[in-house]
């Protein structure tokens, strides 16, 4: 029976491929995470809790996760919209915009951070307009949000695009011929089909935002309890040679991220059960 656990595929080379996969995964992903957890284990859970529950660390963690969720939600809505436009409509410059969606992947985050700061600082192009209205974007939480939206933008669009391309016009026409209004078609037919892919994109964008450091430190004010993100606090702890506290914050972020991604997966499973695979 045990041999039945692994279903034989027509493709050869399973053992080799599996070996390489496990080795690479261990070296690149599992080992560093184990090292982090070991560091925390050696230090002791009580100390970790004491570090993580201090006001400043709690503030940084809350800020990081709250803004990441907000940025990912923003990207969820506008990413789906962007994907829809790119797949369903023809307009001049479409390929250019399609290519531009990937730019946040390619651009070094520090470059993005500095460029965004230049634009949104009070003497910058957009920051100046905001300043006239009495608003400050760069060096506030709004600035962090802008940076996180930027780095997370491609994820939703790129995961949803192929799904939209698969949806045939006939489905919408059938819905309409059965008397559904356009809104009902969107709500009951289109969106459920997009849900799983959009959620995957949302999870990816969220994960990316939580870990983002390079672009945010330029546009955030880095003031403790106000504009200090958790990854920056980790770096600050390292620079104080406080490796244990840095590991503690890292473990806290790991756990929260894991729980959040787990929850998103549950929602995905639930939505697949409800509407079936697309």
């Amino acid at each position: 029976m045990p041999s039945m656990l692994i279903r034989r595929s027509a493709m050869p080379g399973f053992n080799l491929a599996m070996g390489i996969t496990v080795t690479m995964l261990s070296v690149i992903v599992i080992l560093p995470i184990m090292a982090l957890l070991m560091r925390g284990l050696v230090w002791g859970p009580a100390e970790i809790w004491a570090t993580v529950s201090s006001e400043r660390v709690r503030g940084a963690l809350f800020l990081s996760f709250r803004l990441s969720v907000l940025a990912a939600l923003f990207n969820l809505v506008f990413g789906v919209m962007l994907a829809w436009i790119l797949v369903r409509y023809r307009f001049p410059g479409k390929r250019l915009i399609d290519a531009a969606v990937d730019l946040p992947f390619a651009l070094p985050t520090a470059v993005a951070g500095i460029a965004l700061t230049t634009l949104y600082a009070p003497n910058g192009l957009f920051g100046g307009i905001a300043a006239d209205m009495g608003l400050r974007i760069a060096y506030t939480q709004a600035g962090i949000f802008v940076a996180l939206v930027f780095v997370g933008l491609p994820f939703v669009t790129r995961t949803v695009q192929p799904v939209i391309a698969e949806i045939e016009h006939e489905v919408e026409e059938a819905s309409a011929s059965l008397g559904a209004s356009r809104l009902t078609t969107l709500r009951r037919v289109i969106l459920p089909m997009l849900m799983p892919a959009a959620l995957t994109g949302f999870a990816l964008a969220l994960a990316r935002s939580v870990g983002e450091y390079g672009s945010v430190i330029f546009i955030a004010g880095n003031i403790p309890n106000r504009t200090e993100i958790a990854p920056l606090l980790i770096v600050i702890r390292l620079e104080e040679f406080n490796y244990n506290a840095a590991a503690a914050i890292g473990i806290a972020m790991l756990l929260i991220s894991f729980l959040m991604l787990f929850a998103i997966n549950l929602i995905q499973i639930w939505s697949r059960r409800r509407i079936g695979y697309v």
């Binding site: 700061t117 230049t118 600082a121 009070p122 003497n123 910058g124 760069a138 060096y139 430190i217 004010g221 880095n222 003031i223 403790p224 200090e228 770096v235 600050i236 620079e239």
Partner: peptide, 21 residues
């Protein structure tokens, strides 16, 4: 009275001179 805490002196100089903060 400090609105931005950069990590190094050069960063602060940039914030003050280039960003006008």
């Amino acid at each position: 009275h400090v609105p931005v805490l950069d990590s190094g002196a050069r960063g602060s100089t940039t914030t003050f001179t280039q960003r006008g903060i």
